[in-house]
């Protein structure tokens, strides 16, 4: 590359950066509203606006923390999210790998059945009856199982689409060394799926973390409730206390945001690891 094209491309790059930062205001502005509102008092918090709080009320966070039983919620959410996400990833990677490589009639039928799962709705009553029959209704384990089944189709399809881009010659080399089945999967395929796995991990963690429908139906005790349900302690039909809702929004979203901050670095290292082979 010559010097001038290099200079031109770095100029273009900074231009792209500037444009992206300006556009990011569309995202940052509403978030700024939320954060500012979370520090306001009741009178100011009646509406969401960009004004600077006249009185700073950090105590909103304390109120949310105590009234929303945040600590218990965080622990429950961590437990459910980590187990469900781990199961989803493992199950999906296995399915995506075997079904893509087999490419037979049976595997096609199975894949089609899995596609149906993108459409199949959660049906409360039959699910509750099923869980009661299995003797696990009301437990976190039941919730984790249902989450796994619900989110598995998307991640399986995602894994399948990535396995397709991995040349089959990779497998051949390992097979020659005597690897097959689980060994092949664990040693060769799984490391190559690192980038999509991290992405899938983030997405699933986020979906499970944010879901509030399933726990409402499947957990029968507030002590087992997950974090997002805490928002219902702060707004009613007749009354929106925006300062508390905002503080709650910040608290509930913080863990997943931190996860993404760490996770996305991981995606990059995943990329370089994947790029060694080819």
């Amino acid at each position: 590359m010559t010097g001038s094209t290099k200079a031109r491309s770095s100029l273009a790059l900074s231009l792209v950066g500037i444009v992206l930062w300006i556009l990011s205001l569309l995202i940052l502005l509403p978030l700024a509203l939320v954060i500012l509102t979370s520090f306001k008092n009741l009178q100011e918090g009646a509406t969401l606006n960009l004004s600077w709080p006249q009185v700073f009320v950090p105590a909103n966070y304390l109120t949310v923390f105590v009234d929303g039983k945040i600590l218990g919620g965080v622990l429950n959410s961590l437990l459910v999210t980590s187990f469900a996400t781990a199961l989803i990833l493992l199950c999906s990677a296995l399915l995506g790998f075997v079904l893509t490589r087999r490419a037979s009639r049976t595997s096609n039928v199975m894949m089609t059945l899995i596609t149906l799962g993108l459409v199949a709705p959660f049906t409360a009553l039959p699910t509750i009856l099923l869980l009661k029959t299995l003797g696990i209704f009301g437990t976190h384990a039941a919730l984790i199982a249902v989450y796994t089944a619900m989110f598995l189709p998307f991640t399986t399809m995602m894994m399948a689409s990535f396995v397709k881009t991995l040349p089959q010659e990779l497998d051949q080399a390992a097979i020659v060394d005597g690897a097959s089945g689980p060994v092949l999967f664990w040693r060769i395929i799984l490391p190559l799926l690192q980038a999509p796995l991290v992405t899938a991990f983030l997405l699933n963690a986020m979906w499970v973390w944010n879901d509030f429908m399933l726990p409402l139906y499947l957990l029968t005790s507030a002590e087992k409730w997950t974090l997002p349900l805490s928002v219902f302690s702060f707004f009613g039909k007749y009354n929106h206390s925006w300062q508390l809702i905002s503080a709650n929004m910040v608290i509930v979203s913080a863990p997943v945001t931190i996860l993404y901050l760490f996770g996305q670095r991981f995606i990059i290292s995943g990329m370089t690891a994947g790029a060694v082979k080819g």
């Binding site: 509750i128 009661k132 509030f212 409402l216 139906y217 029968t220 507030a222 002590e223 219902f232």
Partner: peptide, 25 residues
């Protein structure tokens, strides 16, 4: 007291579903 605060929009559906499943609080 283990107080479960359900959303207004669907508390009734949830209660009825639980009643049908024999799982009232």
């Amino acid at each position: 007291l283990d107080i479960q605060a359900l959303p207004i929009d669907n508390w009734e559906s949830i209660m009825k579903t639980r009643a049908a499943a024999g799982e009232l609080p």
